[in-house]
Design a protein around this nucleic acid. Structure first.
Lengths: 344, 344
DNA sequence: TTGTACGCGTTATCAG
DNA sequence: CTGATAACGCGTACAA
């Protein structure tokens, strides 16, 4: 906390440069010398000064997570953060959190600003930032490295990707296998890749089951609990309400369940509910929610790992596909046999 | 992203030091000069280099949040983080997240290590770190500034504090007002200030209502959903099960509800359930959970603000009391009149 | 395999 | 009120 590289060099009887070599794992240090340096560092409890390191080396050892501010408190973001921190820990990078307003017309500028101000070595972009072609182009122009998570853009090169469309289609197939035919969907927010993919998967699933697409069964939503409530109200007020509702994420699905219970419906006896994401809450509600597990921690970790790899070597870093997993739980069941779902 | 202080000084026709004065809001700069510098900086899109600033100024403009790793993904921590980020944004500090293992015997050392390595200007400690006298003493010795959130230690000087004991007692009073007399408690984890306070409040509440403390109605828990399930099993298996269960936090309370439903009980008709924290989930479950609202975002924000104040001026920084608020929702109701709560 | 000299961009010191 | 100059601690280039 006090010792400098110079002190270590002195007690080890070598030059500063040699100490630097040891600490940066550079080659061309004799084993014996290395040990001597390490012993000296240990004795002095030496830690390299991050600021000096950054200044001299022209890198910050900092990666920055950019996400949409309104979702700042969401379990999805939290899990991504946890994974990101794991990767940072093992690579000696630091993580910085940048909740920014996406809705603002200035979001490209605000990301640029953030980069200019804090100078991270790279960014991890979450949707909808990850989907913004203009932003990605601008970052490319500026030579800023970035990784994306679940980006819509076809040309995403570094980060993670999950086949949400296929996952959604599989969910619908499962609903169909339970006998459901009037399956509704409450979508995610506009400009979010998740919306498009999950909606597309929903349509795929219907088509494959030979069920006609019924636009009255698809309502615009967001990703919030309140969106789920609003969507459920609209759907359950229909003359012919659906027997199953696929909400675009778990928060929204919880809203659906809440509204259904408020109307005295039983789940899954009267209504089956499907979510997406597998947040911790989905296991904690009752009945527990059938959903699609996204391995968010892994996604955060892998995105960070790939980003750091691409920082160290611009030709490295991959777009890593991650698996989803259907979690069939208690909120879904066979379609009601007798009368259609009742409503109050 | 390119311009240096030297460039700004040149185009403004002043010295570097003057530019520095302007950017650091130091006194002794003529208004006219200030404007000239600001214009030049604007024109060149100048941003101070954080590493250089830190190196020369011997401070990192970084504050570090220390919390228990197993709770890394909890809504409580996430909300604290959101608040902390708000404070950082407005003060131009950065936040760093340090999930550490508390269970490890080495936690004092691991905090020291973290400080030595990253050199934050201060720490925000969450329980159980905030409760660890040894740790606090060591930090005082080292001259490391810190703020605590909900610390047990009587000598906490900077941070936030909430009267959890009183809040818990009030909850029990409410339960009593509903007619409950067999009120159980599932505690929080050992070594966590929340456990002691909430348990003490529970006992206060009973005592004031003239209800004898019954140790069979108090079971050890943690803060997890699973702890709630385990606790509920134990309690609902009693010959004379409670008519109300006060879980130490919302996650645990959700576990209680889950187990009750699994047994075919109705909430609140057969069993009233009380939580603590008011996490987002508590509103999303059905029935929505009666709980105590802790203003976690505010706590994170205020703790960060006070910490930063105390960094800037060691005599500044307060221990700020924050208010709790009972959230009476749907999971609690009058005690069952006829037979005692049934169980399967 | 190792060492020397310099520069990174800012703040602190002290003189004007 | 303003400015010149020396740190701050480490990496890089090049020399040995």
């Amino acid at each position: 906390m006090r010792a400098r590289i110079e002190d270590v060099a002195a007690t080890a009887g070598v030059s500063m440069k040699t100490v630097s070599r040891v600490f940066n794992h550079e080659p061309n240090v004799r084993e014996k010398t290395r040990l001597r340096v390490e012993a000296a560092a240990q004795a002095l409890n030496y830690r390299p000064n991050p600021s000096a390191r950054s200044l001299a080396g022209n890198r910050s050892y900092l990666i920055s997570l950019v996400y949409d501010d309104p979702f700042a408190g969401s379990a999805y973001v939290m899990e991504i953060i946890v994974g990101m921190l794991q990767a940072c820990e093992s690579t000696h990078y630091s993580a910085m959190l940048r909740p920014l307003e996406y809705s603002s017309a200035e979001h490209v500028v605000s990301v640029e600003d953030s980069v200019a101000q804090y100078r991270p070595d790279g960014l991890i972009l979450l949707p909808p930032f990850a989907d913004d072609i203009k932003l990605l182009q601008r970052l490319d122009e500026l030579g800023v490295r970035y990784a994306t998570i679940s980006a819509k853009a076809k040309d995403a090169r570094v980060g993670t990707i999950l086949d949400e469309r296929k996952a959604a289609a599989e969910m619908i197939a499962h609903a169909v296998s339970l006998g459901h035919r009037r399956i509704a969907h409450i979508t995610g927010p506009m400009a979010h890749s998740g919306r498009a993919w999950r909606l597309a998967g929903y349509r795929d699933g219907l088509r494959r089951a030979g069920i006609d697409y019924d636009e009255t069964l698809v309502v615009d939503g967001g990703f919030s609990f309140e969106d789920g409530i609003a969507g459920a109200r609209q759907l359950l007020d229909l003359k012919l309400p659906p027997s199953a509702i696929f909400a675009a994420n778990d928060d929204s699905a919880c809203g659906v369940m809440h509204e259904a219970f408020e109307r005295g419906l039983s789940i899954p006896q009267d209504l089956s509910v499907f979510g997406f994401d597998d947040t911790p809450t989905s296991r904690q509600v009752w009945p527990s929610l059938t959903t699609v597990r996204q391995p968010c921690r892994d996604m955060g970790r892998i995105a960070a790992e790939q980003l750091i790899a691409s920082i160290r070597d611009p030709s490295a870093g991959q777009l890593v596909p991650v698996p989803y997993e259907l979690q069939i739980r208690q909120s879904t069941g066979p379609v009601p046999t007798g009368t259609p779902a009742k409503r109050r």
